[in-house]
């Protein structure tokens, strides 16, 4: 039983997000960075570049290449994860790179690459959304010109009820999960994956919820970026 009298196991209502904390500019060497906590997920993202794309054959004569690398650290999950990329993380890295590339003005930096490192330090369902959301903040923090600040959130189905932001057991035992990422100004879909079982009506409901989640998280991203500069002003002489 994952939901009882409209309340989920962790006390949330169906349309409620887990607590989210975002902090921009937390690393020294990286050009931009972000630390994000989303429920039990703890994610660090960093951006390097634009810099010369290496190996040279990946260079694009007209634009920058976005190279996002999603990585789960071995101790982020209950059974130790073997270090290095597995098929799942290769796929997530690919769809994340593609989603981010849509908003970056890549045409300004031909033949370069922009590396986006996403390290999942602690995992509790929804790491790809947490990772992409953090990566977007890190890109903005690095001063990479973007047409929008992408944001991700998932909706799914547990015990026949469409809910926002699946957590822990809901992800393992739920009936469907659908992570999406959008460009919030236009609400274009940049990333969408889905597995499980949903009717078309349930899909529409889930999409509405996921969009609502994205809008909420988008606010937190912007607040985090503003906060970084507020603190800077305070310490300035």
């Amino acid at each position: 039983m994952l939901i009882k009298d409209g309340i989920r196991m962790d006390g949330r209502k169906p349309d409620e997000l887990r607590p989210i904390k975002i902090e921009a500019g937390v690393l020294h060497r990286a050009q931009g960075s972000c630390y994000l906590e989303w429920g039990g997920n703890k994610v660090m993202a960093a951006v390097y570049g634009p810099r010369e794309a290496i190996p040279r054959h990946i260079q694009h004569p007209l634009k920058a290449v976005i190279n996002a690398r999603y990585n789960m650290v071995p101790f982020s999950v209950s059974d130790r994860k073997r270090p290095g990329p597995d098929r799942r993380s290769v796929e997530i890295s690919k769809v994340t790179s593609e989603a981010l590339e849509h908003v970056v003005f890549t045409g300004l930096f031909p033949r370069t690459m922009i590396d986006v490192c996403i390290e999942v330090l602690g995992a509790e369902a929804g790491t790809r959304c947490a990772g992409l959301t953090a990566a977007a903040v890190a890109l903005a923090d690095a001063g990479i010109p973007m047409r929008d600040l992408p944001v991700a959130c998932a909706a799914g189905k547990i015990d026949g009820t469409v809910v926002l932001d699946l957590a822990g057991d809901e992800d393992c035992e739920g009936e469907a999960d659908m992570p999406i990422a959008i460009a919030p100004r236009t609400e274009e879909i940049l990333l969408m994956q889905m597995d499980g079982h949903m009717t078309y009506q349930e899909f529409e409901e889930a999409l509405e919820l996921a969009l609502k989640g994205c809008r909420e998280v988008s606010k937190l991203q912007k607040e985090a970026l503003l906060r970084k500069y507020e603190t800077k002003n305070e310490v300035a002489p």
Partner: peptide
């Protein structure tokens, strides 16, 4: 699946879809 219900989806590449386009694709796919 055989009822026309969704079992898996994947959006790929660097472009985007509007919400309406996504919904339309599903109806066409059915």
């Amino acid at each position: 699946d055989e009822n026309g219900d969704l079992r898996a989806m994947q959006k790929g590449l660097t472009g985007s879809f509007t919400v309406e386009e996504i919904k339309n694709n599903i109806k066409r796919a059915q």
